[in-house]
Nucleic acid binder design. Structure first.
Lengths: 346, 346
DNA sequence: CTGAAAGCGCTAACAC
DNA sequence: GTGTTAGCGCTTTCAG
């Protein structure tokens, strides 16, 4: 039993081999190719291994086989449930395939993205799953390309990169279209920091396009870079006399804050103001009123990305951008949206 | 440049040494003990290393040094923001200390806890942070003890284990006390699956104790094992003619569903029904009405646990249960709680 | 200040 | 069916 310089004892394959009276290779085979080993020796080795709490050392195995079975994960923040739900999907899928994950959060900072990728590369991950701020300009992705490491983006969409996403521009247009059909003519959009996320940008563009098509009476776009001040900034808009009758938000977290802002302005949702979100975080459907939103299959986006990445890794090739997955979204028209009250829409 | 059996090229220390015309040891020193290397050779090596995108191979380094700088994380689910927020705290703190994390979720299943611990042990993590279902009976913790690996529990509380938590029994009593002082005499408690979490149990016990002390007129305890059915089960209680005037929930997610249930029963919160939560998830304070709750410093609990664990690891000793941290909680009396309306409290 | 050599724990040819 | 051997990439004495 080898004693480490400090800390816990760890049993090595040599210890097990010695105790079982076999060679290390036999022990190794028991764990990697059980069939190649006689049933009784296998049983003996296994029993001793279990008794000693032996598990093959992953670092040594990785070094030897050049396979770590570890995937690197890079995402903005777990404070937004959309990413937490996605990571949960990733975690479940990887565990099911006997892979392990190593997550980093970037707080939407590109330097952190690069740092994370660098660390993960050093670690010898076999592939990465990323949610980056801006796929088009990402240095982290260039590095990944240069390193020839398989990766898949989630929530991002880009021609040149393998992505798992939903058609959010389209979804956004559908949302606006729905509101217009309900009778809304003054619609505002509230987005997160546009510079920090190509998603927010795309959704915003989708909104503008739909607004133009519908030839709306009034279109306001409000960028709320920080969640802390979101409520008061939204309230400000609601105090204007020509305030919108509907507020389209670039994500659910903002939409929830918009509901709060409405409440503080003594407006009731949806009678005085319709509100829609984007993402489909779990809690949205338990609110009162339920949040109308574009529900993305967050957990599934994670697990699909895992499946694709693992497949690529095991086949020794890079995921192809042309195989990018656009998963279906589901617009949930629920209680936070309704026709504008007649007096409001003049 | 060594070509892997499949997949990406990776540059090794030998490549760098050769290109720089020095020995591998020198390159190694540049990365680990820069001071031991002459300034100009150091610069030369560094420049070549950067140009080639070289990063020391973590597996090899771990194998050699017996230090992985990886911490294992085991928690129930990221679908509950309380754990997502905590993991975010863990992620930030570990990144700041140049450690990496390897998280596993258990969905409250003890077998998954054991499996996760086993995998992490094999991996050679230097320590673990866990949120287990029941610290007292956990086989995973026994295994950790046997392996002599440093670990810290979060949210769990136990005499024999190093824990970072808040005094939730006390907090629970304070919540009930507060409601009683507001005038509530019929108070109900809604808990998650008690068998799945010693926290839920402790909070429930705290509630019962406080209820007894206050000699309440009516005490209902409702266990809602699954979130999917929570709303309807809570509604059922609210339909009773002697329904509680206040509902104390064992966590915020349940409290949000209780608010929903109240809404569906046409009760307004807090006029017809007061509701309190537990955990202090971020969203709670942006709801309308804001959720009254016991706010735990979730992110900080994670980072404190990291700091403690890392300190222990680096000093080569196990965290001592007697040093367990009980962080302060903050009861937020906000909009979801108020005195009962006079007609209700007969 | 730098190089040579050994070895961390494991697996995969290759022998037998 | 099993053992022997070499070596994955790195760090670390030990020499010089």
């Amino acid at each position: 039993m080898a004693k480490r310089a400090y800390g816990p004892y760890r049993v090595s394959i040599l210890d097990i081999a010695a105790r079982a009276g076999v060679s290390p290779s036999t022990v190794s085979r028991v764990f990697n190719n059980p069939d190649l080993v006689q049933a009784d020796t296998r049983a003996a080795v296994l029993s001793i291994a279990n008794k000693s709490g032996y598990r093959p050392n992953a670092s040594a195995r990785t070094l030897r086989t050049q396979r770590s079975r570890v995937l690197g994960i890079v995402l903005p923040t777990l404070e937004n449930p959309v990413f937490a739900e996605c990571l949960q999907g990733i975690a479940s899928a990887t565990a099911a395939q006997s892979y392990t994950i190593m997550p980093f959060t970037t707080d939407y900072k590109v330097e952190s993205e690069e740092e994370a990728v660098e660390r993960l590369l050093a670690f010898g991950v076999e592939g990465m799953l990323l949610v980056v701020s801006d796929a088009d300009s990402s240095a982290a992705l260039q590095r990944l390309r240069a390193a020839d490491l398989p990766y898949v983006l989630i929530y991002n969409r880009h021609e040149k990169h393998p992505c798992v996403s939903v058609a959010d521009d389209e979804a956004m247009q559908e949302i606006v279209g729905g509101l217009v059909r309900l009778g809304h003519r003054r619609i505002g959009m509230v987005c997160g920091r546009l510079g920090a996320s190509d998603r927010a940008q795309r959704r915003c563009t989708g909104f503008q396009k739909a607004a133009r098509q519908a030839n709306l009476d009034s279109v306001t776009i409000l960028e709320v870079p920080f969640m802390d001040t979101a409520i008061s900034e939204i309230s400000a808009i609601l105090h204007r006399h020509d305030r919108p009758t509907a507020l389209v938000c670039s994500n659910d977290l903002i939409a929830i804050r918009a509901m709060r802002a409405a409440h503080e302005c003594q407006f009731s949702v949806p009678q005085d103001l319709s509100i829609t979100g984007f993402d489909g975080i779990r809690i949205g459907s338990d609110l009162a009123p339920r949040l109308s939103t574009v529900a993305q299959p967050n957990s599934k986006m994670g697990s699909e990305a895992v499946d694709w990445l693992v497949r690529s890794v095991e086949q020794g090739r890079l995921p192809d951008a042309r195989d990018s997955l656009i998963l279906p979204y589901a617009i949930q028209w629920t209680e936070s949206s309704a026709p504008p009250s007649p007096t409001l829409n003049q």
